[in-house]
Design a binder for these strands. Structure first.
Lengths: 153, 153
DNA sequence: GGTCGATAGATGCAAATGCATGTATCGCGG
DNA sequence: CCGCGATACATGCATTTGCATCTATCGACC
């Protein structure tokens, strides 16, 4: 008999992931087209955003790397670019001589807020009409659960 | 009063999208690390996969472009690489002199199936334990609804 | 049939990316 | 305290990417 029928767990997991991935592509494609991202690529904005959410202000580069789909070397150079533009500040970690910690400058905060406002508007106009509030809640819960599980291992 | 309180629709949509995006990053990071993708980058595999799902066998390049997070020019060169490796075949569209249609070669089918098997296994081991079957069903439904809504406009 | 804006795809070129590797530090076992 | 594998980050280099632009075709309108 067939090892994988239409309703099998294998197929379900595969289709779920593909659907999630395609939805992400579709939304991302629209979001990237926003005029704000001509100034600052979305990857770089994402770093500013992540830093803006960090309570202590400082974040280590390897921690940043977990949030972002970039190789270690690419992130290193991305941060270098941000530093050259005066958007972030780098400093060696006192208690770990190998590490580097990063913080937003005032200009970095400013630009993050500016782009962020427009970005959020775009998100709302895309996601808002697509799903009810309850559905968004549920999607938020499920993706958070998925992320937590995947990160754990 | 505050325009956006903690439970506002704006915040909900923004957090939902971020959660979806981060989940995608976390899963994708693991999937990309699979040994199969040393042979063929995931982007290129994705093209083979999309072609393998196409009923007629042939798919136009601009249709491919909708499924993939790449610029038109990058996709053009990606397909060129696949053609050079003998994984796909290109042919002008008869009824549209500007268009190109693409089809898997036998070698392309073979490689897609080979990588696909391993890829599906990886997906199952990541997504399977993270969510119940019912949750996966629901996640599939919600992401499909989101994608459809976003693509429509 | 001719004109013109829109669309499909290719290409030059500068920028970004990943891989492999290099350097420095860390932390653990002896 | 020494040695050694592991970790954090940087860098050389080849590949990939996107932007701007080019060519060719399409479709609509006169």
């Amino acid at each position: 008999m067939a090892a994988q029928t239409a309703g099998s767990p294998v197929r379900l997991a595969a289709e779920t992931w593909e659907s999630l991935f395609r939805a992400q592509v579709a939304v991302m494609r629209k979001l990237q087209a926003a005029p704000a991202f001509k100034t600052l690529p979305l990857n770089e904005y994402d770093v500013l955003f992540t830093l803006s959410r960090c309570p202590s202000g400082w974040l280590r580069q390897n921690e940043l790397n977990d949030h972002i789909l970039l190789s270690q070397s690419s992130l290193s150079r991305l941060v270098e670019r941000l530093e050259k533009r005066g958007l972030v500040e780098r400093k060696p970690v006192p208690e770990d001589g190998r590490g580097v910690q990063i913080k937003l400058t005032e200009a970095g905060w400013e630009l993050q807020r500016q782009i962020g406002r427009e970005h959020v508007r775009d998100i709302v106009t895309l996601v808002g009409p697509a799903l009810t509030a309850a559905e968004q809640q549920e999607l938020l819960r499920l993706t958070e659960k998925l992320r937590a599980s995947v990160t754990a291992r």
